[in-house]
Design a protein around this nucleic acid. Structure first.
Lengths: 340, 340
DNA sequence: GAATTATGAGAAAGCGTTTTCTCGGAGCGT
DNA sequence: ACGCTCCGAGAAAACGCTTTCTCATAATTC
């Protein structure tokens, strides 16, 4: 039996009592059911406002079998990319009266499955960002998580829409951009080992090197943070590259900062590119050439897909395969002509 | 009556049936109640795992009168400060098995009250960041929102703990820092009109000017974003100030960027300070002198206060008034000696 | 004026749990 | 062998709501 709080919240029963009707009628009035006599409805409404009645969403959820809440699993809330997805998702969902529940896996991919399951059970649907989760685990999990929208992943479960960013394409464009500026020695400051999006970048770069056998592209170990970029200065300089493709904008900014400390000029001595076009990229010194990903829009799209799923709209978008967002080259001043 | 999904989730009743016991017993087993015979418990557990039974949190919440979820109201999820609070809160809450629900008011303060109420009803408590909400409205709302933790606000409701950042103190330190470097003409690039934290900064600056009548401090209209900083270059130059106190790091970065475009050197020509010490502040060019606010820790503290409230721990911290976080001057390279 | 149909509201079932209440049966003491 | 306590598990109530069922009353028709 439920344990009553010190002072019980006022419920539908109280309103019913005060208005002298059954609680069924109160419910009908509150839900705008017009089969209720106008005078009675008015009386109920009066009682409700007088008592300041607010329906209990938990009871409502249980009866209705829905929570008007969706969950999102993110690996790291401190990453601007996921922040932007969250924001886009949250804003779009709010427009339709839905809220979002956060589940931050803190990069602990072993926790992701449990976390995702728990979040899903509390919500009407789940947006999953799990770049490190193994394919096998994802496949096993997917059916039990429906309705679910995947970010930067795909699954056999055809019911689950995927929203992908074409990192391969983006990184190729950036590389081409550097080549166009006359650079012949490039370096890629890679992302986290098992990151799916890093894999896509690597694939893109393979295509790039295939198309440009004359270009020397070195792979450098990296990560996804400022610190990584900052600490990679030596490796970058040792590589002799004049054009550096950083895994993302954060790494690029760290690198920019490290190079500045060494008195190395960007772009005169070295050109640097980022990825993502986070808001800060416009305001670095020099401003950062990057591949713009419409990430907030992606979050928004995630909601729209989810909404279709929840409403059971027969979405052909799923059948057509993942929705792919193309990054757009954003040329700014961190890249320039190669030194002769 | 609840509308059943196409294929009903398996519930406690299914497990009970399979194990040949009553659902009460299943509940007891699932909750580690030891008044159940070991062999029966084992049978129930076997049935549960075989059916892959996962208790429905909504039913559980209704019975228990708690949701293991807390809400947070933020005015703008794109602001790094609120992102950091959210992160600190979410991580700390997760440690104790709680989740967080987001309510983004999008700076629409008229929506804040409704939003806060709705979020509160779905959760066991609420963390409120509502810098623009009027005092009157806050006072009226506060009692109905309990348990609640306030960020950068206070209320008469003594049950609601407040976590505050001493922006006044921080901005004074920054101003003193500039004075120490020989600057005599300063400018403050103010934040949003009705922002509480901007008010605190102004109060701090009043104290500062009182203590330093010899210093010329100009107030410039501003805001809280990159763009504001970027577009303030003219106003800053027109002011003739050699030391600029930006409302926050974002504004400072925008300003830094704008100044760079004009070929004005920082800190040689103009010194610039930020506020907050967002992660990016270490990696701007030049690195940004700022007042470091332990904002993630604040989020964490918010959870701890909330936890005490939920557990009904008699917290003397509330009686002692708000918990105040002191910003710490973080001297970096965007500030330097005034030109002679 | 009697029979039929609307209309509108109360009674009750159901959502999926937890927990109190109840009670049969086992164990023990006398 | 009887009565007592104790233990463990099922029955049922409760959490707060929505919705179907049901039925009384009012409205309509011939």
């Amino acid at each position: 039996m439920g344990r009553r709080a010190t002072t019980r919240r006022i419920g539908i029963a109280d309103v019913a009592l005060k208005a002298g009707v059954s609680h069924a009628t109160v419910s009908r009035v509150m839900n705008g059911n017009f089969t209720v006599d106008a005078t009675i409805a008015a009386r109920v409404r009066a009682a409700a406002t007088e008592l300041n009645y607010q329906p209990n969403p938990v009871g409502r959820s249980l009866a209705l079998g829905k929570t008007d809440t969706i969950g999102i699993v993110v690996p790291d809330l401190s990453n601007p990319t996921f922040q932007a997805i969250l924001r886009g998702l949250s804003m779009a969902a709010a427009q339709d009266g839905y809220r979002v529940l956060i589940a931050d896996s803190s990069e602990v991919s072993s926790e992701e499955a449990i976390l995702a399951g728990e979040a899903r059970r509390r919500c009407d649907g789940l947006v999953l960002c799990a770049p490190r989760m193994s394919d096998a685990e994802l496949e096993e999990l997917a059916p039990s998580l429906h309705p679910m929208v995947l970010i930067n992943r795909t699954t056999m479960d055809t019911r689950a829409p995927s929203l992908m960013v074409d990192y391969g394409q983006g990184i190729q464009e950036l590389a081409e951009h550097l080549v166009g500026l006359g650079h012949t020695k490039l370096a890629f400051l890679a992302g986290p080992e098992r990151s799916a999006s890093n894999g896509l970048r690597l694939l893109g770069l393979e295509k790039f090197t295939a198309a440009h056998p004359e270009i020397d592209l070195q792979m450098l170990d990296g990560g996804s943070t400022f610190e990584v970029g900052h600490e990679s200065v030596d490796a970058v300089l040792a590589s002799g590259a004049t054009g550096v493709l950083a895994f993302n904008d954060l790494v690029a900014m760290g690198l920019l900062s490290g190079l500045h400390e060494r008195g190395i000029r960007v772009p005169e001595d070295i050109s640097v590119t980022g990825f993502d076009d986070i808001p800060f990229a416009r305001y670095t010194t020099p401003t950062l050439t990057t591949a713009a990903v419409p990430i907030t829009e992606l979050g928004q799209q995630a909601w729209h897909r989810m909404r279709d799923l929840i409403r059971n709209v027969p979405s052909d978008a799923v059948a057509q395969g993942p929705t792919v967002f193309q990054p757009r080259l954003e040329g700014r001043s961190s890249t320039g002509p190669a030194k002769p």
